[in-house]
Design a protein around this nucleic acid. Sequence first.
DNA 1: CTGAACATGTAAAAGGTTACATGATTTT
DNA 2: AAAATCATGTAACCTTTTACATGTTCAG
Lengths: 183, 183
Amino acid sequence: MQLTPTGWSILGFLALQPRNGYAIRQAARRSVEHFWGVSDGQLYPQLRHLHELGLIAPAGAAPERGASTTWHLTTAGRGALHEWLRTPSAATRSRDENLVKLMFADDLGRSAVLDLLQERRAAFAATREQVAAVKPGAQRHGEDEALDRVGPRLVHEYSLSFLDAAIGWCEDAMAEVTGQEGS
Amino acid sequence: MQLTPTGWSILGFLALQPRNGYAIRQAARRSVEHFWGVSDGQLYPQLRHLHELGLIAPAGAAPERGASTTWHLTTAGRGALHEWLRTPSAATRSRDENLVKLMFADDLGRSAVLDLLQERRAAFAATREQVAAVKPGAQRHGEDEALDRVGPRLVHEYSLSFLDAAIGWCEDAMAEVTGQEGS
DNA sequence: CTGAACATGTAAAAGGTTACATGATTTT
DNA sequence: AAAATCATGTAACCTTTTACATGTTCAG
């Protein structure tokens, strides 16, 4: 069984609990967004595809066009997800325009380098606040299977620790660049 | 002037010093790879494109097919690069399959979560060694303008501090998951 | 009843990765 | 002379992004 990681991620969200496409998007925004964005244009085609493969099924009989459709995993879907979970992962990849700029910014002088670091710090700090405001796994109210999962909590903690490290680095770097007034 | 960040990154490497396509790829591998990969299939078409825009020029008269071509920035190219450097950057984006799996791995039990964390730790540790082995900015021998640039050094330090944070988090997470033998 | 949020979708274009294909140069 | 590395390029495919398009439900 072969899917794009975006497909797997959608499958994963349905494994946590049944929901409609819109709710998947929201859940992705709350948790995964920074390391696996799911874009609008891909969500609904992927749902159709997963349905065709028999990995998910609509709650009602037939999904009507334009109406809200709640999807849930089939047995095959859960099996496929578990199989994927045991598969080795592709390496982490980032696309970080700001860092690329930093690489080449010397030409413009120290102040330009500082500007880039400041931009970076501000962006990370804003993201950190946003992430800190979210409670991981609290996707439903009341007692729920989702609540005692370690996965969402660990991922949330990872995001925070990454952001803290990045912000810390920005500050160190700014101090370093400000300190040595050579060149 | 509008380019893809891949194009800008190529331009940036030529700003540091003139070189051929192959050398750009190598330089990218040494420095930027983890946060802005430049893939083979894009490099040469991009060089042609940058040439058409008048941002870079070949060393010899005309670039011959199959022969090594050393490219350097034109005045317009350097101007465009500088302009880009002052432009606000797109937000950092990562694609991290391992983290997505972690999010959904609870179903398979604590041992599967630990496996994922171990896989993650090993991958980051390997990358860390690889990155640590590289000396930033040392792209030429002898005294060189590249040597007193802060950019490459800062970026190198960022990579290391990111990797350290990630490895630290893996270890904390493993301890946490191992510790609480509930569920 | 009006606007905000909910909900689903499509089409086109841009971008990136992979695999392939070829030949030159240098080292052993 | 063979092998490794240097060097350039193409084509197909896959994925993602963006922009658009439409209709519903609920709160004020």
